[in-house]
Design a protein around this nucleic acid. Structure first.
Lengths: 156, 156
DNA sequence: TCTTGACATTGGAGTCACTCCAAGGTCTAG
DNA sequence: CTAGACCTTGGAGTGACTCCAATGTCAAGA
């Protein structure tokens, strides 16, 4: 099996495979007569394991170490620490989800603010109030001191 | 205002501020007699705007460009494209959240699997079935062909 | 036979957004 | 006089790729 085929099958780029090999995260496959890499089923399994560990967002170094151990048959040595590792990973993932949700809320707020303001954006650049800059400032900061003023002006 | 004070106030590192300046993302502040950077309120506002744009995960280049425009008073020029930009950003954020949620599910699965298996992990390193490797393989891949066998062995 | 095109090889540089470091200068309080 | 907190610079390191140029290999078609 050549590098391109393997890459396609496992959904990574050939650059990634060569990078893993170059940095020592994967064993070097044997070479064909023409110098091309020739991957055996053993190599494929090792890589698949590594990629699965990457899929749960382990840092490459950790994923590679674990993949090598498991592949070498030392799995049981590491299996006791594995649940702890997974637990840590989960709480990281959850924290990141929460963070992104808060970001989404801020964006929602900002969007609503901007949509409401678009008609009023004829206010010239010299007016700092309710300009896009002020909107970003205020919506992102969580308070909007410019709206009341602008609305009052609009109503007048 | 010196660099350390500003960094503390806005919650970034002095390295970050020097980096922004060095790469041209922020205008150079004036210098005091001793060569120290001396930030004016104008600089602070500009930086605050940039950091707010970074907080909504805009790439630094885009955030810096937008911050400079807004700060220079060209806000209204950009305000029409801003809602579109925010919308794009939101869909990116949502996609990432979904991705992380799926990851969390896979981790949940894997964790359940491992907890169920810990007692059985006396199976030696030579046995590839139901080793940690197999668990990672199978739980991550979504199917587990090893459990039935291992459980049968365990029951026997 | 020749050519085209898809594949492979290598080393090295670029990406992003910082982060850390060493070696030194400046200032204030005790 | 000294300790400690601040500041300066340029340069290297981080993670995980990604892209590139220059070159080699090979099978299929004209």
């Amino acid at each position: 099996m050549r590098i391109g085929e393997l890459a396609r099958e496992l959904g990574v780029s050939t650059d990634t495979l060569r990078f893993y090999e170059r940095e020592g995260w994967l064993p070097r496959p044997v070479r064909a007569e023409n110098g091309y890499r020739s991957y055996r089923s053993d190599d494929v399994e090792h890589l698949r394991l590594l990629l699965n560990l990457r899929r749960i967002d382990l840092p490459l170094e950790e994923a590679a170490r674990l993949a090598s151990w498991c592949h070498a048959g030392h799995c049981e040595t590491t299996s006791s620490s594995l649940p702890a590792l997974i637990a840590t990973r989960r709480s990281d993932v959850r924290a990141r989800i929460d963070e992104l949700r808060r970001l989404d809320e801020r964006l929602d707020e900002l969007q609503a603010h901007l949509v409401g303001r678009t008609e009023l954006s004829v206010i010239g650049p010299s007016t700092s109030c309710c300009s896009a800059a002020a909107a970003i400032f205020d919506a992102v900061e969580g308070s909007c001191r410019c709206c009341a003023v602008a609305n009052a002006e609009g109503d007048a």
